[in-house]
Write a protein that binds this DNA or RNA. Sequence first.
DNA 1: ACCAACGGGACTGCCCGTTATT
DNA 2: AATAACGGGCAGTCCCGTTGGT
Lengths: 196, 196, 196, 196
Amino acid sequence: MPKTTAEAKEVRRDAILEAAQRTFAQYGYEGATVARLEQATGLSRGGIFNYFPTKDDLFLALAERDAERIGALWLEHGYEDVLRYIDESEHEWLGVYLEIGRRLRTDEDFRERWRQRAPEVDRRLAEDVRRLQEEGELRDDVDVETLGRFLGLVADGIAMNRAAGFPTPPFEDLLLLVGDAIGGPARLRTRPRRSA
Amino acid sequence: MPKTTAEAKEVRRDAILEAAQRTFAQYGYEGATVARLEQATGLSRGGIFNYFPTKDDLFLALAERDAERIGALWLEHGYEDVLRYIDESEHEWLGVYLEIGRRLRTDEDFRERWRQRAPEVDRRLAEDVRRLQEEGELRDDVDVETLGRFLGLVADGIAMNRAAGFPTPPFEDLLLLVGDAIGGPARLRTRPRRSA
Amino acid sequence: MPKTTAEAKEVRRDAILEAAQRTFAQYGYEGATVARLEQATGLSRGGIFNYFPTKDDLFLALAERDAERIGALWLEHGYEDVLRYIDESEHEWLGVYLEIGRRLRTDEDFRERWRQRAPEVDRRLAEDVRRLQEEGELRDDVDVETLGRFLGLVADGIAMNRAAGFPTPPFEDLLLLVGDAIGGPARLRTRPRRSA
Amino acid sequence: MPKTTAEAKEVRRDAILEAAQRTFAQYGYEGATVARLEQATGLSRGGIFNYFPTKDDLFLALAERDAERIGALWLEHGYEDVLRYIDESEHEWLGVYLEIGRRLRTDEDFRERWRQRAPEVDRRLAEDVRRLQEEGELRDDVDVETLGRFLGLVADGIAMNRAAGFPTPPFEDLLLLVGDAIGGPARLRTRPRRSA
DNA sequence: ACCAACGGGACTGCCCGTTATT
DNA sequence: AATAACGGGCAGTCCCGTTGGT
C-alpha cells in the first residue's frame, strides 16, 4: 500500500518536470546544477532522484515531453500554429528545446538514447506534409521532404533567436514569408506595393 | 629582444584559436575542458593561458572572430553565399556559432561582454539589406528589417539542423524557397508542376 | 493484543539476519547498502529498521550470533570441528566473520561495543584448552594460552584464504599439520617417507 | 623540460604511498576518504590525483608494493623471517595487507586487476618451497603445495590477529609450533615435559 | 508492521587557474 | 615562454535514516 496514489505521484512528477524545465532553460544543461534543481523544485536530492534516477534521465524525460507536445500541436493544428507557439513561447520553454539539439551534437550517449525514442510521431508528421502537398496546399516543384525540413528549420531559427533574446519578425509577416516560400502552385503572388 | 617576433606570436595565437574551434564545436563550452584544449592545441596549460587569460576569454575571442567572418561574407558576397557557407560548413564550425547563442541565453556576463562588441558590422548589414530592397531585389510589402531578420533566422535554422546531424534541404531548393519568400515584387512565380 | 506473536517476530528477525549475512559477506560492510539489504530480505527500509534501529546494530547482532555459534561448536565438538566448519563454510559465511575483525581494527565505536559483549564464552574456551593439555592431548612445553591462540590464528587464516577464493590445503592434511604442531608429548612422530 | 627530475617524482610518489599506507590501514579502504588522504599526505586533491588517477589505483599500487616486499623477503630470508616480519609489523602495515584480501572478496573489478599482476614472484615462491622439501627441510608425507599454503595461511592468521589488536603467541613459540607442523622427516620430536 | 517518499550529508573525481621550475 | 605539479572548489550521485501515511 503506497504512501500516495498513482495520480498524486504523476502530479508530483510533472511538478518536478515543470520546475526543471525553467532551470534547464535558464542555465543550460550543465548550468542547471542539482542544487538549483533542488531550489526550483522545492525538493531535496532524495526527492528528485526518487522520480528520476539521474539528472540526465530527468532531462531526457523533459525533452521527450516537449517533442511530443510539438508533434501533437502540428498534427492537430498545422504548422502555422507550431510556428506561432514557438514564437509566443516563453524564453524558458525554448531553452530546453535548444538544449536537446545541443546535446545531440555534443553528447554521444544522449544521441543514442534519443534515437531509441518512438519515431511514430515523426512518421505521422511526414505523412501529414505529404497530404498537404497532394491537396495543393504546398508547391509541387520541390520535394515534399524538403518542404518539411524547411519548416522545421524555420522553427528552429525562430526558437534560437527568441531564446537568445533577439527580436524576431512580427509573426504575421513571418507567416506571409513562409507561406510564399512553400505555398501552392496556383497561387500567383503579384503583391501590391505597400503604401508605407 | 623578444624570443619570437610579434607575428610569430600572432600565428601561435591563431593556431590555438583554430584548435579550440574544433574542441568547442565538438564538445560544447562546458565539455571543452582545458585538458581537451591542451590535447587539441598540443600545448600545455601554461601555453594556452599565456595567450588567453581564461577559457572564457578564449571562447569570446573565437566568437568574435566568427561573427566578423560571417559579417564580412555577407557584405562582400550577399546573403546567398552566407547561407551556402553555413550549409557547407563543417559540423565543427557550427558548434561554436551555436554556442554563442547559447551562452547569450544562459550566461549573463557573456551577454554583457558580447554587447560591447563592435556593432559596426550589424549597422552595415542592415544598410545593405535596405539597399537591396530599394533596388527591387526584395519584396517591399514587408518591412526591410523583417526581411533581414528572416534571413538571419533561416541561417540559424540551417546551422542548428546541420550541427545536430539532421539532413537539411538540398541547397538549391533552399535558395529557391528563400528567394520566393523574400523576392522582389515583380517576380511572378508561376511555377510549373514538376513531372515527378 | 499484538498482531503477531513474539515468536513470529523472532522468526522474522532471524530471517533478516540470515539475508543480511549473505549481503554483508558478499559486499563487505560498506558495500552492503541498505538498498541491497532490502533486496536480500525482501523487506523495505521500514521493515528492516523496525527490527534493528541501525545498519550498524544489525551488523553487530550478526557478529554476536556468529561468535556464539563458533564458541558453542568448539565447546561441544572440539577445535577440529571448528576448523572443519570454517573450512567447509560457504564463502558467504566467512565474509561476516572477517568483517568483524576488520571493524575491530578500523572502527573505534565498534571496538567498544564488541568489548562489552559477554566474555563468558571466551573464558570457557580457555578453560577447555587447559583441560586438553592436562589430559595430555596437547604438548606441554608451550604455554596453553599460546596453543589456544595458535589455533585461533589458524582458523582465521583458513577463513581469510577461503573467503578470498584462494585454494586451501586439503582438510585432512591440515589437521595433520596442526596436530603435529600442538600434539601431546608422547606422540613420537616418525613419519614414513611417502612414495610419491 | 619537466618541473622536477624523475627521481624527485619517485620520491614524492613514495611519500604519498607511505602516507596512504597509514590511512588505509587505520580506516580501511572506504574509511580512507580522499579528505583523509589529503591530510595524511599533506597534499591536496590535485596533488594526489596527479600521481594516481584514482583512489583505487593508489590502493592497488600500495597492494602491489606490499606483495612484492613480502615475496622478496621470503625469497631472500625464508619463511621464518616473513612470519617474524608480519608478527613485528606495525598495526598500520597490516591493515593494507588485509584490505587486499577483503577487496579480493568483495570487489570483482579489483579481483580482475589483481589477477593481472605479475605472477612471477608466486612462481618463484612455489619453487623455493619445493627446493626446501627436496633438501629435507620439510616433511615429505604431505604435498609441498599444501605446506606452502599452510604457511601462507598462518601468516594471514597472524596478520589478522595482530591487526585486530588481539594478543598473538610469543614469536619463538610460534616458530616452534610451525616448525613441528612442517618440519623434516628425520626430526623425531620427543619433547621433554617442561618444568612449569 | 510495513511502506514509499524524502531530507540532507558526504564521497569521489573533475575542472579551472596558479605557482614553482627550467 | 612553456611545463608539470598543485590547490581548492564543486558537481552528481549514493547512502542512511526519518517521516508521513495506510
